[in-house]
Design a protein around this nucleic acid. Structure first.
Lengths: 340, 340
DNA sequence: CACAAGCTTTGTAACGTTTCATGTACGTAC
DNA sequence: GTACGTACATGAAACGTTACAAAGCTTGTG
């Protein structure tokens, strides 16, 4: 028993064939049955496995895709990363994950680093748009469009916003509020607000939008709410939050002040990741098609046939009723679950 | 302007030095000042960067660490992955992330795949313990000890549990309940239950534990609660949940049945990730030292000096008061935040 | 002034693959 | 029975680094 990791040369010697033949076997290139069997037997006996670094050096292809995200401790980003990881593993690709920790300044440095590591492509969820550094390397932007000539997979944030407004209006709300927190480098979530406002105007319903450009700047939201509670009643009877997490905090805050949800005010959140959901919904929300976004991005990046032409894909979102609107809660939908 | 990616040979020619000298410059090995300057100038002019695959093939070292986690759409796992990513990037290491999607069967396949990709080490959060496949490759288990001879970084789940019990008791609770969901392949979170029970017994306080071995099996918890609500009052006045997420759902469920938190029942959750927290705590919880766990695991794996000897590290957890216990809420603690 | 002892620099041989031009064997058609 | 085409096997030449032995150069010592 040797103490070194076996190489193709060892397998070739053991099987009594040429080096090139072994290579062919491991690359699915036509090889005579007898040869193939001998090689496979020898490889199994020696416990051989291909060295991806040698392969990557010689062929230039690495079976590795990089994903760049701001951070993983945000439910939507981590769900997306989870789905991308799943899709890549399905296809025998490896995932090199890079977090910028929400520092837009770090983004091009990350792209640089990733390029140097010779990946087959990049899936990026970035704020800055001047990533043309990417050059020849396949690049797909996910969740946000950063440039007209970079393929992009996003979900329909505008419709998500108008969907929320329409729903609240159809449920009887007459004065609506849009709340938003988060860094505002690129206004992807603002499209939700835009859709919301547009739908309100179309319906002739009064509405107001409060945008806080701070990742955790929830205090400003609370202050606003305080200002608009008169005699224990909130001036608004419908609230749309740009995040389930925000909806969660806002709901708690209102309830502590004696305002009941959904009796006094109805609420709709956004995202629909599992963090805030279980069998029974606990918040009405606009569900983003996370898995589908990931799958589409991966397919475009890997150039799978039917996706070859699509450069900009915008996937539909859906509404899921939960406990924060006045309607019977639906069950079991929208849960994002992989594996068996 | 050439159209090929420049190599060390190009830099050497441009700078008028030997190939080996260029290599030394990029590896921080002693080189005469004049030579170093010439090389750096040439490299900058050509836009050269080292090829990690060639380097990995030749040297065997890849500056890449793999992390294996069950999934990223669980707040604790994704926070941990986020922190590990941060620590690695700080040290100029790359992260290859692998998700098993909670399939214990997939774990050894993942280890296999990762080994073949020639990483410098593995940080694993796995359920199965027969990962000796790892062989010579440095391996650090995080969050759970899987074998006495594999280094492990975890947090003190037992103390976390007893801390929760002691807190609830000191706040006046007389009948305690421990609730737990999640797959039960390895009983790491059960240590929380054990610590909880031990502390209750020590204090002579009545307690009960309900364990549901299902990742999303919250229905059974609801059913139990229903059984123990008599005349609109819950039999228990203190609840400890093995997850903030679970605490969140349980609280909502109780409130819908007219049981107030913290007036009628006090609650403590577990984890303390940012998903359920903001400036003001919204749930009392046992905070896991996520960042410290990640840092320690990385340091052990990378063999940084002061960590060379530590094989099993168990880090302390802390209590953070929030809105679900009867005490003034503290502010701004426990928030996990990276970047500037 | 010759010689040893340090230092850098140099050139070359790996590292484990894939690729490609060449070689061989076999079957088919006339 | 010869000529030709097809299909597969072979061996050598890359791929871009690092490691190592050998060669230069500098400095200090007897």
């Amino acid at each position: 028993m040797s103490n070194k990791k076996p190489t193709m040369k060892d397998v070739a010697r053991e099987a009594g064939v040429a080096l090139g033949t072994v290579s062919k076997v491991f690359n699915g290139i036509a090889v005579g049955k007898a040869y193939r069997d001998r090689v496979e037997a020898a490889a199994a006996q020696l416990g051989y496995s291909v060295d991806n670094y040698a392969r990557g050096l010689r062929s230039g292809r690495t079976s590795t895709v990089a994903m760049i995200v701001p951070g993983l401790d945000h439910s939507f980003f981590s769900s997306l990363a989870n789905a991308v990881s799943y899709e890549l593993l399905q296809r025998d690709y490896r995932l090199m994950l890079v977090t910028t920790q929400f520092d837009p300044h770090a983004e091009s440095r990350c792209v640089q680093m990733v390029r140097q590591n010779k990946v087959d492509g990049i899936i990026g969820l970035t704020y800055t748009s001047d990533l043309r550094i990417s050059g020849d390397l396949p690049y797909v932007s996910i969740d946000r469009c950063i440039s007209p000539n970079i393929p992009c997979v996003s979900s329909d944030n505008f419709s998500g916003g108008s969907m929320a407004a329409e729903k609240l209006i159809s449920l009887g709300c007459t004065k609506l509020l849009f709340l938003r927190t988060g860094s505002r480098v690129i206004g992807e979530t603002d499209k939700r607000g835009a859709g919301f406002t547009a739908a309100c105007e179309l319906a002739g319903t009064e509405s107001f939008s409060l945008r806080v450009n701070d990742e955790d700047g929830i205090e400003a939201i609370y202050a606003f709410l305080d200002d608009h509670i008169r005699n224990g009643r909130l001036e608004y009877d419908g609230i749309f939050c740009n995040t389930d997490r925000l909806a969660f905090f806002v709901r708690r805050y209102l309830e502590q002040r004696g305002i009941r949800v959904p009796e006094d005010v109805q609420m709709i959140g956004y995202d629909g990741t599992r963090h805030f959901f279980t069998g029974d919904y606990v918040c009405s929300t606009i569900v983003q098609p996370v898995q589908q976004m990931a799958e589409t991005a991966v397919r475009i990046l890997l150039n799978e046939e039917q996706y070859r032409l699509s450069a900009l894909v915008c996937l539909p979102v859906s509404y899921a009723a939960g406990g924060t609107t006045r309607e019977p809660a639906e069950k079991g939908e929208g849960l994002i679950n992989y594996g068996k």
